[in-house]
Design a protein around this nucleic acid. Structure first.
Length: 508
RNA sequence: UCCUCGGUAGCUCAGUGGUAGAGCGGUCGGCUGUUAACCGAUUGGUCGUAGGUUCGAAUCCUACCCGGGGAGCCA
């Protein structure tokens, strides 16, 4: 590409060109007919049609301007085809450039995959196969060339491992583009689902005061100079000199705070970032991920299950509706069960079964498990998948788990052997949602905190909720990236979040 | 953290002790409408790093680094 710039003919079209607040390089505005002057356009983005809309509803005869990045260029002797993509859809707009354009030899030939362009012209019916309409290019502005020798994205399939090393460029690929459109549609659907039902979105804190949340290793947050940590007389870190005057961490859950807000607004939800410092190196774990946690007052476990089922059906329907091409792509190229799975979620009533019953079914199963089943142990991934995939062949909600394997805040059932917990198990992925009815009885909750060996003083406000106007309530948690993984069929969670954070990895 | 597989051209990979390869990409040329265009030519490497065995190491050994998959933990 540098060689092209060195050509005298190309150099004559080079000039600094102020463009809005940024400076772009104008490689040339090219007129098909030399008598026609370039028409300066408004730089306001909202005046530019998105390629998605042009492909769906653009009419031949429209004069349009599009902006985007060149995905491919196909050249023949007398004509050049560009596919321009602006991220609004999987498929790009085909642009036809004829050799009689001014500067064709210098500018059009210089265009490479990855270059940024603005092209004006007429939308016409495409005589070729593969697209309804195409853009007959008349003016072309090149904002930036992507040097073909060094631009790492090629017109071929790349491994996801390789694309992960290109976190700043991979969103321009078909698959990651589809992932992030689906992710957006999914987030939008989540808000819409809750807002339609009167839930309030609550921003629970990201920095939390103590580790009483009790769910996994936490990242410490400190303002102390780590090269000169103040010590107490006993040699411990003197947190009284730290920013908050006590140890602080990044949140691992917004649930306890959501419970506070549910005691005022009945139905609330959180949707925000969550952090786990666990050294988990798997395709299903991130150190920073987004979590959705609805919490409902005056609600029991059955109401919780109803909400979880409605929730998944709604999200899947919405995303299929919003991103049909992307979902079709996932089904074709990533996992051919994506659409069947979505259909299964949307059109089946979820099976509901108590843990004790599930264990009996697993014991009777004509199948040998790596981990033998026994009442009292937590279900392994292989057990969950057997229930959802082989036995019921649809989503299964398992309820009433043994008290010993679940968290202290889950409501104790009569007899005390089980708690009102629920896990939604889905074919292909296993647990997708985990939740419970919360313990609303003060005396029971106090006993459970003590039995768990937790510092009861730290929970004074949580216990106050039971002292003052307590109410049965319930909620669940859902890992947002796992939902996106589930919907798209993407195998690695690092490929459904724009900038994954995992142990020893925090690029971009 | 444990188990396991891997690291060779820009990318995807072949090469199991004897002169480092293919496809794709890039570049150049050709081709009147292409669809991951096509055809021809060409470019391209400290074989993850360090040490060792050997006449000779991409290949065998040791350590380390990085990545994939699985497990645990979990969402």
């Amino acid at each position: 590409m540098r060689r092209c710039f060195a050509r005298p003919a190309a150099c004559t079209t080079l000039q600094a060109f102020g463009y809005g607040r940024s400076t772009a390089t104008d490689l040339g505005r090219i007129n098909r007919q030399s008598s026609r002057l370039p028409t300066p356009h408004s730089p306001l983005p909202q005046t530019m049609p998105r390629i998605r809309d042009l492909l769906h509803s653009g009419q031949p005869g429209q004069t349009i301007t599009v902006q985007g990045w060149v995905r491919t260029k196909r050249e023949t002797k007398g004509i050049t085809f560009l596919e321009v993509n602006d991220g609004s859809s999987m498929v790009g707009l085909q642009v036809v450039l004829n050799t009689d354009m001014t500067h064709y030899d210098t500018v059009v030939k210089a265009l490479t995959t990855g270059s940024s362009v603005e092209i004006g012209g007429d939308l016409v019916e495409s005589p070729g196969k593969g697209q309804r309409v195409e853009l007959q290019g008349q003016t072309l502005t090149v904002f930036g060339i992507a040097d073909g020798e060094t631009y790492p994205l090629q017109k071929k399939r790349h491994s996801f491992e390789f694309l992960r090393s290109l976190g700043h460029l991979r969103a321009r690929t078909n698959t990651l583009g589809a992932v992030f459109r689906v992710r957006n549609a999914c987030a939008q659907a989540i808000h819409q689902f809750f807002q339609e039902r009167g839930f309030l979105w609550m921003h629970t804190p990201i920095i939390t005061a103590s580790d009483c949340e009790g769910a996994g290793a936490m990242f410490a947050v400190t303002g102390l100079d780590l090269t000169q940590v103040p010590r107490t007389a006993e040699g411990q870190v003197d947190y009284s000199q730290d920013f908050f005057g006590k140890p602080a961490y990044l949140t691992v859950s917004g649930q306890l705070e959501a419970e506070i807000m549910a005691m005022a607004f009945k139905d609330v939800y959180t949707f925000g970032p969550t952090f786990r410092a666990e050294n988990s190196n798997t395709s299903r774990h991130l150190a920073e991920f987004w979590m959705v946690e609805p919490e409902m007052a005056f609600c029991d476990l059955v109401g919780n299950m109803d909400l979880a089922e409605d929730f998944l059906k709604y999200i899947f329907s919405s995303v299929l509706n919003a991103c049909p091409e992307d979902m079709e792509f996932f089904n074709q190229r990533i996992d051919d069960s994506v659409l069947a799975t979505a259909d299964n979620i949307i059109n089946n009533t979820f099976e509901r079964i108590a843990y004790t019953e599930a264990v009996k079914l697993l014991e009777k199963a004509d199948k040998s498990f790596e981990f033998p089943v026994q009442w009292g142990i937590d279900l392994q991934s292989e057990h969950e998948r057997y229930l959802a995939e082989e036995l019921f062949k649809k989503p299964v909600i398992v309820t009433d788990y043994p008290t010993g394997i679940k968290a202290f805040y889950m409501r104790l059932n009569d007899g005390g052997e089980t708690v009102a917990a629920m896990d939604v198990l889905a074919p292909k992925v296993g647990e997708i949602i985990g939740g419970s009815q919360r313990e609303e009885r003060l005396d029971v909750l106090e006993r459970r905190i003590q039995e768990a060996g937790l510092p009861i003083g730290d929970y004074w406000w949580y216990l106050d909720l039971r002292r003052f106007g307590t109410v049965p309530h319930a909620g669940f948690g859902l890992g947002f990236e796992r939902l996106v993984q589930f919907m798209t069929g993407m195998g690695n969670i690092r490929d459904v979040i724009p900038f994954p954070r995992t142990p020893d990895s925090i690029e971009f």
